[in-house]
């Protein structure tokens, strides 16, 4: 009968319509912005810089190695290296970026900068409501806007952050252990040197030559 197929299709539509009241699978619309779906942990948007502690200047992890700048596909990162150094989290003297700009209007959220950074200094944010009416300035983020504390990272990517933190804690422990060992070795060496000096003194004394003070 002509029209049978159409009627069958309409029955299907009706089933879907009624089903949307009871079946979560059929009603997927979310009334954004009042209602929001939670973003998954892996979600990414634009990069930000991490710092430890409270001071975004002193705690900034970036050592200005320029790797991310070179690897970024659209070249939207601009870094200028400092001339002086500051200690990093293990106490080693490192450079820091005097200027660190990301042009997020060019950034394509590819996460390659995060992947290549060997210092865990740059991570992806989840913030996506970033519209601005300033075409050129508003989307050029400087170090001030980019720096976010580690607590923020722990909040948005809990699993990833825990893994990073554990790795860094391990590194710190190792460095401290090494430093302690080195200190111990240095102390032992000093003690030895002192002893040797003592012995020499004694020997000298025996020889009857008083060392001049």
């Amino acid at each position: 009968m002509l029209g049978e197929g159409i009627v069958k299709g309409l029955i299907e539509t009706a089933r879907n319509f009624v089903g949307s009241y009871v079946d979560k699978d059929r009603l997927v619309t979310v009334q954004y912005p009042e209602e929001r779906n939670p973003l998954p942990e892996a979600a990414r948007n634009f990069p930000f810089l991490l710092y430890d502690g409270d001071d975004p200047e002193a705690g900034l992890r970036c050592v200005s190695c320029h790797i991310c700048e070179k690897e970024c596909p659209p070249r939207c990162i601009h870094i200028e290296k400092s001339t002086d150094k500051k200690p990093d989290f293990v106490g080693k003297q490192q450079f820091y970026p005097k200027v660190f700009n990301i042009d997020v209007s060019v950034c394509m959220s590819c996460q390659i900068c995060v992947e290549v950074c060997p210092f865990d200094a740059i991570r992806m944010d989840k913030e996506f409501e970033l519209s601005t009416d300033d075409r050129f300035g508003g989307l050029l983020w400087t170090k001030k806007e980019l720096a976010k504390p580690n607590e923020y990272y722990q909040k948005i990517h809990p699993m990833e952050a825990a893994e990073t933190d554990a790795r860094r804690a391990e590194e710190l422990k190792q460095t401290q252990a090494k430093a302690a060992a080195a200190a111990a070795a240095a102390a032992a060496k000093a003690a030895e040197a002192a002893k040797a000096a003592e012995a020499a003194k004694a020997g000298n004394g025996a020889a009857g030559k008083e060392p001049s003070a």
Partner: peptide
């Protein structure tokens, strides 16, 4: 036309735009 590409270099139109804010 001024383009955004490479606009993150200092002294570029982007930087001036930011300064003008």
């Amino acid at each position: 036309e001024p383009v955004m590409d490479d606009g993150c270099a200092p002294g570029s139109s982007a930087e001036q735009g930011a300064a003008g804010q």
